[in-house]
């Protein structure tokens, strides 16, 4: 491209990238620092990672987060994919109602989601625990999965399914043999997004988790409030690595597979 942005623009851009990444980089580096209190570099250690394994609350929190993440991702991915199929491939009455319904979770502030669900659970006398957390995560993830899968479906040539049908495939066969192979990168990246949001969520979870069902973010929050020690850097680093790997995988998935022949 011929028009290069002016120097002052590039300066802002460089500053923004430093602003976005330096704090995380520092965080990671100091997870390997020996000293407990100082921000002086005193030597390399894996001590803080070992300490994580000794702390049952962290290990338990991690296990809970993964369990909630996987189950809420599975449910929201199925629900969201079905909704995206309906929106992209069917003419039906009440479409604008459904679209509005899908918008609500995207624009509602997390804190409102959290307390309104808390109210519902208390009203129903439903115990707070892993189930209540999972339901909350499914509720806020369905819309995001739907949006991601729907975008993929819209990029897909609708005549592919018609081609399959005229070649002799019925709707179900056409779905499995043609739609799903085209769609699965979209479904997977929707699922990855859902898992990441579930795995990272603190605000909503904090309202709907009971005692004994603290997920990892809840545990980390408590640690941050209590006292800052390098174990937090270590657990943060692990979360960062997991997220980065998920993002790279999802990015590859959406890039490698061509959407259509051209």
């Amino acid at each position: 491209m011929s028009h290069r942005p002016p120097a002052w623009v590039l300066a802002i851009v460089a500053a923004v990238y430093v602003f976005l990444h330096a704090p995380l980089l520092v965080l990671v580096v100091f997870s390997f620092n020996e000293s407990k209190y100082s921000v002086e570099w005193t030597g390399f250690t894996l001590h803080w990672y070992q300490r994580l394994l000794e702390r049952h609350d962290i290990v338990d929190g991690l296990v809970r987060s993964v369990a909630v993440g996987l189950s809420s991702t599975a449910l929201s991915t199925v629900f969201g994919t079905l909704m995206a199929l309906a929106l992209a491939r069917h003419r039906f009455r009440g479409r604008s109602f459904v679209e509005a319904l899908l918008y609500v979770p995207i624009v509602t502030p997390e804190i409102v989601v959290g307390i309104s669900l808390l109210i519902l659970y208390v009203l129903l006398g439903w115990p707070l625990g892993l189930t209540s957390i999972t339901i909350a995560h499914v509720a806020f993830n369905i819309s995001f999965v739907t949006v991601v899968v729907h975008a993929r479906l819209q990029g897909m040539d609708g005549s592919l399914e018609e081609a399959a049908m005229i070649l002799g495939a019925d709707e179900i066969t056409a779905f499995w043999r043609v739609t799903v192979p085209q769609l699965w990168p979209g479904i997977l990246s929707g699922a990855m997004l859902a898992f990441t949001m579930s795995f990272d969520d603190y605000v909503i979870t904090s309202f709907v988790s009971g005692t004994g069902s603290q997920t990892l973010p809840i545990v980390v929050y408590t640690m941050v409030r209590k006292n800052i020690e390098p174990s937090i850097n270590a657990i943060s680093t692990i979360v960062l690595v997991v997220t980065t790997v998920m993002l790279i995988v999802s990015d590859r998935l959406s890039r490698d597979k061509p959407l259509s022949a051209d």
């Binding site: 040539d157 005549s159 592919l160 018609e162 081609a163 399959a164 049908m165 005229i166 070649l167 002799g168 495939a169 019925d170 043999r177 043609v178 192979p181 085209q182 597979k257 061509p258 959407l259 259509s260 022949a261």
Partner: peptide, 28 residues
Amino acid sequence: RPYERQLAMVFQSYALFPHLTVEKNIAF
């Protein structure tokens, strides 16, 4: 339904299945 009609069709966009090779497209 289309699959009950024993027809063949060439589409404007060609509608070739992007995930299948040429021979698998033809064999479909």
